[in-house]
Design a protein around this nucleic acid. Structure first.
Length: 880
RNA sequence: GCGAGAUUAACUCAGAGGUAGAGUACUUCCUUGACGUGGAAGGAGUCGCGGGUUCGAAUCCCCCAUCUCGCACCA
């Protein structure tokens, strides 16, 4: 074992070993219970970022833990084609490098390039995950556009179509003029932007005056087909049925009455543009209004716009406002910031547009997805996200799934070239069922990228085939993902799983937050505040990064990335490394198993008892998905109990002459270290496996070793109580010495005056602990304080006073100050306890054990106070 | 507008109906044979404000404030 902790030296080597020994492989195994996680497939758009590192660390902790608990643990990895994101990315790269546009490239060539891209980034991503230590079953790696997934996508599409849950409709959809595709509602982000209300006169035809209309988007006037007022509006109701004139255009618009119009908003009169606004679209349907499309697919104005044709929509807005003003139609302009929808991929303002698209009918699918959570079959952790989940499902609208893109699953709909028939089928039909023609053309569009990810938990296990894997591993146990894709992905997996499999896709959904930079800003390329996980691994090791991510926060909350915390995790790894080196140092060939024949010391019993408690608590925390708590417990136990106390106390026997005692302490050292390595392994897999290779063990590799189980025989409350007394004594002695500025190298005799004989006996029996850890030269019992020299400093614990005669070193004034301080502290404690015990309510209603505890405390503090007081008397005489 | 989260030590965050915790930073001391990426001792917080429930609230409930973040949006 190398003397320096150097993760670079072993992390890759260890991972290679795991791979070559097939440690992550999972198979259908009737003798074991399965535990399954499917990896949220990272997009192949680029490299993994810190958010992926967090997501994967959490999953790896769970899967490694379950693997050690004896489950057939499958973590199924893969990547997502990420239709729109990848297409945008690939096209941009090609355009920047070669100056070739999408149209110039052509569909076939583009797909060739995109596949090459996928191969490259797929490899990079796998490499990154392996660097992080992710224990996926790589033989089962999948891609959302591989053959099996394609098969599943087509199957689901056809089935849903046949059930009437997929339909083609001419509806108002979200259109991104830059990506030139539709977007689902979930893919539209709302952003508040400055805007204005323009109040415009629409003159009444065959009558006096005009209707004043307020609009935020004057350019859509070109496509107005009506003006609506509330039928109960006294100001306008007489106008219903009449017409008004569309300013700047020689068109007449019917004035209609519709409840949708709110009388007290704006002017109470609404221009209706069915082809460019969702609400107007609905009004249009109710009143049979014509839908006029005023824009091209790039959001420039089309021929409908007359003289504005060819202008960009925002340029057109300005031009129309200018013309309205010039011709006297503009009443006023009012500032009005409002939310506009933008594309989640390119941030372009989306344009609502009427178009023929494919939709999934959501209502019938949403119901079961709601039920499965309501009836407790599926849990969302933390629970608060259940509300988010429900809220979305209860207000769900139909899902627009067709995209005008090339990278993705082409829609399995075939259009007869001689009649209007559309055939939806797994393969291109031979003959048209309506006209007998054999000429078909497949739909040009591809599916929303989330359509295929929705099938991930079962498409990856072989569905629609009834494979043994599907039968064994589905439903999966837990889905681990960020709250940002609950709508996009989690919900869609749930209803897809319920529909296709008839069973939920996972038992638990474990939601985590996002990784932010040190200032709480979202990490992003454009801000340049991203931190590359590989850089951190290179500098500090994967274990340090993982530990930091796992302990950084509580479930569901965002995590700020702080390099100090990575450093502190690395320091912990270093600590473990060195402690292990210490344990290994004196070991010789042979067995170091505890067999019950050993004569254990107090410290042995204490650490074994504490370890036992830790095993229970850590396992319980993991069971509750409290990964951070579990990791903290291991950290504290390892550092503050095992290293700071047990190892220090072990040294005497280790370096001593007694071979049997030495072997006993080595056995305990090894036993505890072994379990520490196991408990820590899910969090820090590399260092623990590396150390495992150096310590005696009967099992195989740590990665597949057995998770520790608590064993009641190690529980030892007496040993814990006694050790606490000793540790308190040592701490107090150290404290006194530090306050009196006594250097550690100056040893001192320790005289014990016990008010409780058993405490005195304990301290004498374990006198060597005081000698080792509190710089005592010897520890002796005295029966009367007359035996104690006056010029001694004192430390007190319950049941005993400890005196250090330090003659020449003692400064009585200083000692007086110290004693006064201590007295004040104790008086406060007594006061607190007394007031509590004087409280009749407390005495009457508090649980008995608390009452007892408080009474014990009172006795203890009074005793300590008495001792301190006595010392003050003695010292004050000295000062005179 | 509806909903959620946050508000705890200088900083970043855990925790939790029964005397406030960690990491970092800070002060003092320590070349003790695993480790200075270390050891020891210490200072530091009326747990956002105001009410309520309770013997007891930082913890549960209500109100308010500030900051995030979702969702829905009135043209």
């Amino acid at each position: 074992m190398q003397s320096k902790y150097n993760p670079k030296e072993f992390e890759d080597r260890i991972y290679e070993k795991w791979l070559s020994e097939k440690r992550f492989s999972a198979h259908v195994n009737p003798n074991k219970k399965p535990y399954t996680i499917v990896l949220p497939p990272p997009n192949i758009t680029g490299q993994l970022h810190m958010g992926h590192a967090l997501d994967q660390t959490l999953q790896d902790v769970l899967i490694r833990w379950k693997r050690m608990q004896g489950f057939e643990a499958l973590w199924l990895p893969g990547t997502d084609h990420a239709s729109i994101a990848t297409e945008v990315r690939v096209l941009k790269t090609i355009e920047e490098a070669e100056g070739i546009t999408k149209d110039q490239l052509g569909r076939e060539e583009f797909l060739k390039r995109a596949w090459a891209w996928r191969d490259e980034y797929g490899r990079i991503i796998v490499n990154q995950m392996q660097k992080l230590g992710s224990s996926c079953d790589w033989d089962k790696e999948r891609f959302t556009m591989d053959e099996g997934c394609n098969h599943a996508v087509t199957e689901v599409f056809v089935r849903l179509y046949e059930k009437g849950l997929i339909y083609r409709g001419n509806r108002l959809i979200n259109w991104c003029p830059d990506c030139k595709t539709t977007l689902s509602d979930a893919e539209v982000e709302h952003e508040e932007k400055p805007g204005a209300f323009w109040h415009v006169k629409y003159p009444i035809v065959d009558g006096e005056g005009y209707l004043e209309i307020a609009t935020t988007r004057p350019e859509t006037m070109v496509a107005d087909t009506a003006v609506a007022v509330n039928p109960n509006d006294e100001r306008y109701k007489h106008l219903i049925g009449k017409f008004c004139k569309l300013p700047l255009f020689d068109r007449e618009l019917p004035i209609i009455g519709d409840d949708y119009v709110e009388m007290d908003f704006g002017t109470g009169a609404l221009k209706v543009t069915p082809a460019h606004d969702p609400n107007d679209f609905e009004i249009g349907l109710r009143h049979n209004l014509e839908q006029i499309n005023g824009m091209n697919d790039d959001a420039t104005m089309n021929e409908v716009a007359g003289k504005y044709e060819g202008m960009d929509r925002f340029a057109c807005r300005k031009a129309i406002v200018k013309d309205l003003e010039a011709e006297g139609y503009l009443v006023m302009t009012k500032e009005h910031p409002h939310n506009v929808g933008t594309c989640y991929r390119c941030s372009t303002v989306i344009e609502p547009r009427v178009s023929d698209q494919w939709f999934v009918k959501m209502a019938p699918l949403a119901g079961p997805a709601i039920d499965v959570v309501n009836n407790g079959e599926m849990r969302i952790i933390p629970d608060r996200f259940t509300k988010v989940y429900m809220n979305w499902l209860e207000n769900i609208r139909d899902w627009c799934i067709s995209r005008q893109l090339w990278w993705g699953h082409r829609i399995p709909a075939y259009y007869c070239q001689t009649c209007p028939e559309i055939v939806v089928a797994k393969e291109m039909p031979d003959v048209c069922p309506s006209c007998g023609s054999s000429h078909f053309k497949q739909d040009d569009d591809v599916l929303d990228t989330w359509f295929s990810s929705a099938l991930w938990p079962f498409s990856t296990l072989g569905w629609p085939e009834k494979t043994p894997e599907l039968n064994y591993f589905y439903p999966t146990n837990v889905l681990v993902t960020g709250y940002d894709i609950i709508f996009f992905w989690v919900i869609r997996m749930v209803f897809s799983g319920l529909d296709a499999m008839g069973e939920k896709p996972f038992d638990d959904v474990f939601i985590h937050g996002l990784v932010r930079d040190a200032h709480g800003k979202k990490m992003s390329k454009s801000l340049g505040n991203g931190v590359d996980p590989l850089d951190i691994i290179d500098q500090y090791g994967a274990d340090a990064l993982r530990f930091m991510l796992a302990t950084g926060n509580s479930p569901g909350n965002d995590l700020k990335f702080q390099i100090e915390r990575v450093e502190s995790s690395r320091n912990f790894a270093n600590k473990l490394w060195n402690a292990s080196r210490f344990v290994i140092m004196g070991l010789e060939e042979g067995q170091y198993e505890l067999d019950g024949s050993e004569r254990l010391t107090l410290a042995d019993e204490w650490i074994l008892s504490r370890l036992d408690t830790m095993i229970t608590e850590i396992t319980q925390a993991l069971d509750k998905y409290e990964l951070g708590i579990a990791a903290n417990k291991i950290y504290e136990f390892t550092w503050n109990e095992y290293c700071d106390w047990y190892i220090e106390l072990a040294k005497k026997r280790l370096y001593g002459e007694d071979a049997v005692a030495k072997q006993t302490v080595q056995k305990v050292l090894v036993k505890v270290l072994r379990d520490i390595l196991k408990l820590l392994h899910p969090f820090m897999p590399f260092i623990t496996e590396e150390i495992w290779g150096f310590i005696p063990h009967a099992e195989d590799a740590l990665v597949t070793s057995k998770w520790p189980e608590a064993d009641e025989k190690y529980q030892n409350p007496t040993a814990e109580r006694q050790m606490n007394s000793i540790m308190e004594a040592i701490r107090n002695l150290r404290n006194v010495r530090a306050e009196m500025d006594v250097v550690p190298s100056r040893k001192a005799k320790c005289m014990i005056l016990a008010s409780d004989a058993s405490v005195g006996e304990l301290l004498i029996n374990q006198g060597e602990y005081l000698m080792t850890l509190a710089s005592c030269s010897e520890v002796v019992l005295v029966t009367n304080n007359k035996e104690v020299p006056e010029d001694a400093v004192s430390a007190v614990i319950q049941g005993a006073e400890l005196y250090l005669p330090l003659d020449d070193l003692i400064d009585f004034e200083k000692e007086m100050d110290r004693l006064q301080k201590e007295k004040a502290k104790l008086e406060k404690e007594v006061e607190r306890v007394v007031s509590k015990l004087n409280n009749q309510g407390f005495v009457a209603k508090a649980p008995a054990h608390l009452l007892d505890e408080e009474r014990e405390k009172e006795a203890k503090y009074r005793e300590l106070l008495g001792t301190v007081d006595a010392r003050i008397q003695v010292i004050s005489l000295k000062l005179k």
